[in-house]
């Protein structure tokens, strides 16, 4: 399998442990990731609010880059996935498509809408397949209770994302079970992490993040895992302020999705950037029985 890899801005910089673990997982599974140095930021939903048409055009350009290489696009971010998918959908509107095409054509960019937009989670569950993944697990995450946290834009709007039920998704939990972990079901797993208002009103963002972490904790989770680096910022990097805002100690390690997959496939914890987390997952990782145990 060969995919155009769209890491997104956070995985390239402050969340590079996500990039590192993604590359590890894909190497282990024989997925060839093609880097496209021309990819730009997806706008993260903020560009959409500032100028919706510009947002579509920027992302149509991103998609056209993958199309030129004849590849589907894989993201590792719920939001990037959402923005690229949304652009593809908006480009089905004849008026929007004509305006965007008129802008892109003089630049030699030809958008055709032929590349699929997908996310690492979907690649693992739908393309690699859970039975194939199970066969590669070397270090089952036995005894680890993990609360999956999906991130809004993989799920909603459901009629546009056209994936799992936005109320009762199960792909992430199915994956966790295959890795040997025990998935924890809690309402907060499909809720918002608060990130979009982190820079509008941090207290509001913190209260929202704190509530979801608390929900996972009260349902028995040892750790959380997310397929979205923006959720990771809210849940991990800003967990300290969130704990103060909800008035409860949280102490909840939050994994990036591929970190857990890599760990189960036999990666050593040192390779996965755990020291870059604000809430150290090392204590939880140490509980997982070693390879060949």
């Amino acid at each position: 399998m060969k995919l155009a890899y769209y890491p997104g801005c956070v995985a390239k910089e402050s969340g590079r442990e996500l990039d590192v673990s993604t590359r590890w997982v894909c190497r282990a599974l024989g997925i060839e990731l093609v880097d496209e140095p021309k990819f730009s930021c997806c706008g993260s939903g903020f560009l959409d609010e500032a100028n919706a048409l510009l947002n579509v055009a920027i992302n149509a350009r991103n998609l056209a880059i993958a199309e030129a290489a004849g590849l589907d696009v894989m993201t590792v971010c719920s939001t990037c996935q959402g923005m690229l998918s949304l652009a593809k959908l908006r480009m089905e509107d004849a008026t929007i498509r004509a305006k965007v095409a008129a802008t892109l054509r003089p630049l030699g960019i030809d958008y055709r809408g032929t590349s699929k937009v997908t996310h690492l989670l979907r690649v693992l569950v739908e393309d690699v397949g859970l039975p194939a993944l199970r066969a590669k697990v070397k270090r089952p995450l036995a005894g680890l209770k993990v609360g999956a946290f999906y991130g809004c834009h993989l799920l909603r709007p459901a009629d546009e994302m056209r994936w799992e039920s936005p109320e009762e998704p199960h792909a992430f939990e199915d994956l966790l079970a295959v890795l040997g972990a025990e998935p924890v079901l809690y309402r907060g797993r499909v809720m918002c992490c608060g990130f979009p208002v982190q820079f509008v009103k941090p207290e509001t963002a913190g209260r929202i993040a704190g509530r979801q972490i608390l929900d996972a904790k009260e349902h028995g989770a040892d750790a959380m895992a997310t397929p979205c680096p923006l959720c990771h910022i809210s849940l991990d990097a800003y967990q300290g302020p969130a704990a103060k805002l909800v008035g409860r100690p949280l102490d909840m390690p939050v994994f990036h999705l591929p970190q857990l997959v890599a760990l189960a496939l036999g990666a050593s914890p040192e390779e996965l950037g755990f020291s870059r987390h604000l809430v150290s997952p090392e204590k939880v990782v140490a509980k997982v029985p070693a390879v060949g145990h």
Binding site: C9, V10, K12, E13, S40, C41, G43, F46, L47, A50
Partner: peptide, 17 residues
Amino acid sequence: HAVGFKRNIREGGTLNE
């Protein structure tokens, strides 16, 4: 933040946190 994001992308194509 929204307008800053827009300018950010124009300047380097990527987010400057």
